[in-house]
Amino acid sequence: MSIISVKGLSKSYNGSKVLDIEQLEFNKGQSLGLVGNNGAGKTTLFRLILDLIAADTGEVLSQGKNVAQSEEWKQYTGSFIDEGFLIDYLTPDEYFAFIAKLHKMSAGDLEAVLSKYDDFFNDEIRGKKKYIRDLSKGNQKKVGIVGALIGNPDILILDEPFANLDPSTQFRLLDELKKLDEETDITMLISSHDLGHVTKFCERIVILDHGQVVKDIHTSEQTLGELEEFFINKIRSAEEA
């Protein structure tokens, strides 16, 4: 069953089309990896799904409702695109408490959720007298990702969550996302430049190229090779042209 459907969606900047998708369905409970080179339209697609930019044509339906008209999706969608989501003059603890309150979670429930991420935080985030603006990029990202997970969202949208994280943390995040995928009914939309990471836990991979869906694959043993081949071929065809 599809939880988000994208219909006839297009977006142009200064006359050049950056996104043009006829139809794309995101199934409930599925984890989807979005890959593509810079400028392929990944962030644009996420921003359209989150109603942060206006579509030129088409619409995004979340649980059957147009995201540009109804605000209901905000209740069950957790997202982190960039630091532009973080209230930077709060401490991480204050920020988490704020998000938890929005979802009417008790302090105890919040503590239960956050304690699961103690390893992920590596003792650099919680209980420190530091504002988010004074954290390193990587630690800001951790705050954003965990913030998106507070409130048990049905949909999780993360834009390049692995970038800027140190190797150990990347693997921890990978584990967390895998666990989340197995244990809950959450729908994940994750973009990444790391082909290895996305093939490890995403059931489905979509390749965007120049704003269009060029491949839509069910992940299998061969997927990583298939993806690598696609991007290598892109260089070759560019050289020949």
């Binding site: 605000e71 905000k74 532009g84 989501f85 930077d88 998000i99 979802h103």
Partner: peptide, 16 residues
């Protein structure tokens, strides 16, 4: 004043 995290405001779980 809140321009630096305006995207967050637009996606958080409260109505405008």
């Amino acid at each position: 004043w809140e321009s630096s995290y305006f995207d967050g405001i637009l996606t958080r779980a409260y109505s405008m």
